[in-house]
Amino acid sequence: MMRTLLVRGMLAGLVAGLLATLFAYFFGEPPVNAAIGIEEAGSAAHSQEHAHEAGAAAHQHGGEETLVSRGTQSTIGLFTGVAGYGIAVGGLFALAFAVLHGRIGALRPRLSAALLAAGAFVVVVLVPFLKYPANPPAVGSGETIGSRTALYFGFVGLSLLFGGVAVYAGRRLADRLGGWQGGLLGAGGYLLVMAVCAALLPVVDEVPPEFPGSTLWTFRIASLGTQLVLWTGLGLVFGALAERVLRPRVPRDAATVG
Rank of each mutant, 00 (worst) to 15 (best):
T66V: 06
A96V: 08
R110F: 08
L22C: 13
V99Y: 06
F162L: 13
G81P: 00
S214F: 15
L230T: 02
G235L: 01
L107V: 01
G182M: 05
A195W: 10
G170A: 04
L67E: 07
A57G: 12
L78D: 05
G71V: 09
V193P: 00
P31D: 06
L234V: 00
A12F: 07
L115N: 11
H46C: 09
G55K: 15
I36L: 14
V127Q: 07
R172C: 07
A166P: 06
F129A: 00
G170Q: 07
R244S: 13
I87Q: 00
R110T: 02
A222M: 00
L22T: 00
T75H: 06
Y25R: 14
Y152W: 11
L200T: 03
R171Q: 09
A187S: 12
G142Q: 11
T256G: 08
G163C: 09
P128L: 04
D175R: 08
G213R: 14
L201K: 03
Q60Y: 15
Y85Q: 13
G105N: 06
V245S: 12
E39T: 04
V99S: 05
S147W: 09
T66M: 04
G86F: 01
S74K: 06
R244E: 14
A117G: 12
P133N: 03
T66R: 10
S47C: 11
F162T: 04
L107W: 01
D175C: 10
R110D: 14
A20N: 02
A240K: 11
A166C: 11
G142C: 11
M194L: 11
P208G: 12
A12W: 02
